[in-house]
Design a binder for these strands. Structure first.
Lengths: 148, 148
DNA sequence: CTAATTCCGAGTCTTTCGCTCGGTATTCGG
DNA sequence: CCGAATACCGAGCGAAAGACTCGGAATTAG
């Protein structure tokens, strides 16, 4: 039940963009620095985000990235799905319909319902938080703090 | 956001035991057959379940495994935690307190709150389903069905 | 023109998954 | 008492995923 770094870093990067929404483009270098991430690795993550329209890019010097939409309209769930694929604790409970997926269980899959419930629970948790929400919280967080 | 096979198979195996609760021990071989799993692999999963007291074992011929407690008192969350460790979408949001975990973010970790919310959401979904619940559902499920 | 960027594809090292295998200890049925 | 059935144990292993790194091409502000 771990999120990979793709999802985690992706949300961090998007949050960074949200924090500077309306201030012009932010370069990857700056995002990476401010969030403590590898710039080269971030490159790989931002590409799909751009293709999905969640960010816009400006090339060349003084270029960088901008949010594709307003912070309040972008949810964490959307970002995670772009970077990690459909939410699915188990194959048989994917948001994307699996055709002819067979559990290989003689009596039918007893556990499928739990995973479906879990999937919905995850999705609704992630879909209920927007980048705007993250920004609001960010103001309460002191700088350079250690989290325990 | 995928559960590994450890969690999935573990819950299946436990459900199998629950379905035959009160009928004497069930051998691994039988569990594996009925749920379509590898017997050898199941061995590895049942060991920690036994150590955690979720199952009891009887050695020797005609031996096998029994639920350690009544089906209604064993939750899916408990099983998953035994087999996959503490629920934690991100290190910084583990159920088990991480001491001195640092996010490496200049302005403090903006995203931690979402992951904590997500963690709680996952935990409550998994903790709200017991083996008894799975058994109740199992009766509605026709045999050998393909799930789409 | 040049420096700062985005964009792209390939390569690499490590860890985790998902098993398999071989053997030992224990216990029941006959 | 013997043998078959079972639980128990530890090692090993191939494939896949994860988490990056690297080098270079295209683009654009100044």
């Amino acid at each position: 039940m771990r999120l990979s770094t793709r999802g985690k870093y992706g949300v961090k990067a998007m949050a960074e963009l949200a924090l500077h929404y309306g201030e012009g483009p932010t370069s990857l270098k700056l995002i990476a620095e401010r969030q403590g991430l590898s710039e080269h690795y971030l490159e790989q993550l931002i590409a799909p985000l751009r293709k999905a329209g969640l960010v816009r890019s400006l090339r060349g010097a003084q270029g960088g990235y901008l949010l594709g939409r307003q912070p309040a309209t972008i949810t964490v769930g959307e970002i995670v799905r772009v970077l990690e694929g459909p939410i699915a604790p188990s194959e048989c409970a994917s948001e994307v319909r699996q055709r002819y997926h067979h559990c290989g269980t003689a009596r039918g899959c007893v556990t499928r319902k739990v995973w479906t419930k879990l999937r919905d629970s995850i999705a609704s948790a992630l879909d209920s938080v927007t980048l705007a929400d993250l920004c609001k919280e960010a103001k309460d967080v002191p700088k350079g703090m250690y989290y325990i």
